[in-house]
Design a protein around this nucleic acid. Sequence first.
DNA 1: CCTTGATCTCAACCTGACTTGAGCTTTCAT
DNA 2: ATGAAAGCTCAAGTCAGGTTGAGATCAAGG
Lengths: 156, 156
Amino acid sequence: MHRTDLIAIGELAARTGVAVSAIRFYEAKGLIEALRTGGGQRRFLRADIRRVSFILIAQQLGLSLEEIAAELARLPAGRTPNGADWTRISTGLSARIDAQIAALQRTRELLGNCIGCGCLSLKKCGLYNRDDKAAQRGAGPRYVLGDRSGQIAEVG
Amino acid sequence: MHRTDLIAIGELAARTGVAVSAIRFYEAKGLIEALRTGGGQRRFLRADIRRVSFILIAQQLGLSLEEIAAELARLPAGRTPNGADWTRISTGLSARIDAQIAALQRTRELLGNCIGCGCLSLKKCGLYNRDDKAAQRGAGPRYVLGDRSGQIAEVG
DNA sequence: CCTTGATCTCAACCTGACTTGAGCTTTCAT
DNA sequence: ATGAAAGCTCAAGTCAGGTTGAGATCAAGG
């Protein structure tokens, strides 16, 4: 442990590629925590680089900051997370990746079957026999994003 | 061609599962077009169901409405798109799907290698040797979303 | 004809994820 | 000891992608 264990917000930004303002934003949202110098400036642990990196990866996988915060909350409190801690958490992401890949593969297949053949929007088409469910739900809340039941990517 | 060739906005909404307000929004953005009754109500062609379906699929694949509009603009003007037209367009989506799957697979692999082993954020790690590039770019524009150069999913 | 449900327009509002700007303070290399 | 660079807070702005509400009109069955 030497003095460079603590890094300023600018360095954390540089090391992760996110803007300084974004890091403050993440702190405000509870995704990361900062120590403060006597003068009130934030100081981060080197381990926070990994934490921010995790945020970026998870974001790419479509998790909202709120969901990411929930995942990060599973890391041990009060101690720097070790490899095993990160592994446990990243396993969840892997599952998510697998699901996404599977969904994409189904979509690709259906796209070939349906758009190509011209049946898109017809009942017999796997991609859109969600019509019925859609009708049941009424035109109310859009379910394109967020509400994923009956969702395209899950069809088939 | 019988009278039901033209459908009201509510039916288009019901058949596609998107809200009426969203359809108006898409029209405003130029993604779809509507005929009008004498009284000013919108009337859509049945073929627009497919058009909206395409919007939903493309959205799931991460295209913005602007990008989707650009894709749709490649459909023939003045005539109802046929199967071949849709095939041509959906081929672009397939390529995108393939790219996404590949990116996810790389991410999953790197996640296993890097977060698991604890090297995340270190130079030797494929997931984050983008640090250097990041530093060069300065803390300016975030490149997490949108600017995809040096992006996680493209690493490796 | 008349009523009722569907539509219309337009402006305002919403969420998520940040960025920007103003005005002021802290750090740190020289 | 000092001045540039980096940081601070807080409020407001931005962008995408819609939703909501008000007040008025249209369409269609009975």
